[in-house]
């Protein structure tokens, strides 16, 4: 099938496999996306992507990765800004864990 590809990702596990396949499944031109880890002791993820033919599986994978990088980036930005507000609320004057004042270094 010309619209289907397998990708072998080395030294990765469910952390990456699961998130990528789930992202691919959300794309309208991807018909099927799945991954398997053939053996728990073998650090390889086999990823299969089947598209509807309007894009290649490779393009689909690339798009999925980009969206994820972006989504994680946004998560981080939101987390950071929330965190600074929180810090400000809690410590108008920053203090160290041992009660001493922050003097620029740890």
């Amino acid at each position: 099938m010309s619209n289907t590809s397998d990708f072998l990702i080395l030294k990765e596990d469910h952390t990456l496999g699961n998130v990528i396949t789930e992202q691919l499944r959300g794309m309208s031109n991807v018909m099927m996306a799945a991954y398997k880890i053939g053996h728990p002791n073998v650090p390889e993820v086999l990823l299969r992507i089947q598209t509807d033919g309007t894009i290649t599986a490779r393009e689909a994978l690339s798009e999925a990765c980009k969206s994820l990088v972006l989504a994680y980036g946004q998560l981080e930005t939101r987390f950071s800004s929330e965190m600074s507000v929180q810090t400000l609320l809690q410590h108008p004057e920053p203090v160290r864990a041992d009660g001493g004042a922050v003097n620029g270094t740890i």
Partner: peptide
């Protein structure tokens, strides 16, 4: 896109809520 609310934060732990994210994304994190 994802949004975050922090419920608690101190020097040892942070507790937060993330919404508009997928389960696989948060699980991977």
């Amino acid at each position: 896109g994802p949004s975050v609310v922090i419920h608690e934060a101190d020097s040892t732990a942070v507790k937060f809520e993330a919404s508009n994210v997928s389960l696989p994304m948060m699980n991977s994190l």
